[in-house]
Design a protein around this nucleic acid. Structure first.
Ligand SMILES: [Mn+2]
Ligand SMILES: [Mn+2]
Length: 354
DNA sequence: GAATATA
DNA sequence: TATATTCAACGCCTG
DNA sequence: CAGGCG
């Protein structure tokens, strides 16, 4: 039996706690019937067992996207309505998990970061109620496009600066609609609604047209909450600062082209009515919710990749812990080849400035 | 959620 | 054995 | 340096 089928069969045993055998590793899992996503309008509750099943089923598509990337999580031990917190470092991760030492400017010293390279690590994070996965945009493997870059990440800022971890695989754009439905409580973030999502979708389609015109291939996914994530895969010739500069340039162009739709404002209140073009995540140690990551959303939505041709037919709530695995098995992952579609921005800039 | 301390 | 307490991030920008 | 922000 496949590893996925084997773990799913073990999870069918209706005990509240089990010791899973995952690829030969013993993994204790507890509180399997604890509700992490309470029942909402039109949806039954989702438990920790449901989370483990979901992660197991999507793992064949998810793990390749996490390979070699430092990963942190948002933990919700008491469910999505309970207290949550980020966790980047683990004292003593299980022996099947990989930990690497990376310099941190904040700490002025080294810290250990987790890299998730197997199903056991993924399910251990679920047991820790690490629902939301946040992988870096850079990774430790220099193959195939960063062969000369350093592979030592600790000791000093200078060492990390010149290492492969300072060179992201993507320029990313986070599109967050700040059009409010009017039903939000005071001080709350805008909730998902049709008009705001449709505007965000239309902006994404225009951005795609712009980038296609420059000969660039872009990938799109739902964030799992209200907006969209655009990823532009690049050869690792530019560091994070340069990637951020490119995203900012695209953002300034978009603001000038569509001033009624786009905002680059850092102040939340000044974003009202517009779509926040967030280029600020192009930074070492920052992240967006991973592809296929569950989110803090009443319906149990996940971040789902979408083919551009399908973007006008979808809505973020189409993709949940319940629905995404079947869809993935039917249609496959539109992002599967993203690392084979890396583009030479250095050459493009050279051509266009020449 | 887990480790630790205390009754 | 049961309960209480503590802990779990950080990079960048602006004033 | 503190506070805002994601
Ligand atoms: Mn977003
Ligand atoms: Mn954002």
């Amino acid at each position: 039996m496949s590893e996925v089928g084997d773990v799913l069969a073990q999870l069918d045993e209706r005990k509240p706690r089990l010791v899973l055998n995952v690829e030969g590793h013993a993994l204790p899992v507890t509180n399997l019937d604890k509700v992490l996503w309470p029942a909402a309008e039109g949806s039954s509750p989702l438990t920790k067992r449901d989370l483990l099943r979901y992660m197991t089923r999507v793992s064949p598509w998810l793990l390749p996207h996490l390979a070699g990337r430092p990963l942190f999580v948002t933990r919700y031990p008491d469910g999505i309505n309970g207290k949550s917190f980020y966790q980047k470092h683990w004292d003593e991760p299980p022996d099947f998990a990989r930990n690497i030492s990376i310099y941190s400017s904040h700490k002025e010293g080294d810290g250990d970061y987790l890299i998730c390279g197997n199903l056991a690590t993924l399910l251990w994070l679920s047991q820790m109620a690490g629902l939301e996965l946040h992988p870096w945009f850079s990774r430790i493997d220099p193959q195939p496009d960063a062969k000369g870059k350093g592979r030592k990440f600790s000791g000093s800022e200078a060492t990390l600066d010149k290492s492969v971890l300072n060179f992201p695989d993507f320029v990313v754009v986070d599109l967050d609609p700040y059009e409010y439905s009017g039903r939000e409580g005071k001080g709350e973030e805008p909730e998902l609604h049709r008009r705001a999502f449709n505007r965000t979708r239309d902006l994404a389609l225009r951005l795609r047209e712009l980038l296609t015109g420059l000969g660039l291939q872009t990938f799109v996914k739902t964030s799992g909450r209200t907006g969209l994530h655009l990823y532009l895969p690049i050869l690792r010739k530019f560091d994070y600062d340069a990637a951020r500069g490119i995203a900012e340039t695209i953002g300034r162009y978009a603001l000038q082209q569509w001033p009624g739709e786009v905002t680059l404002e850092w102040s939340v209140e000044r974003r009202t009515g517009k779509i926040f073009f967030d280029y600020n995540q192009n930074s070492r140690g920052k992240s967006l919710a991973a592809i296929f990551s569950p989110r803090r959303n009443a319906l149990g939505t996940v971040s789902m990749p979408v083919a551009w041709e399908q973007l006008e037919e979808i809505y973020p709530t189409d993709f949940t812990l319940r629905t995404a695995p079947d869809l993935l098995e039917e249609r496959g992952d539109p992002w599967a080849e993203i690392l084979s579609a890396k583009q030479d921005l250095a050459q493009l800039l050279e051509e266009r400035t020449a």
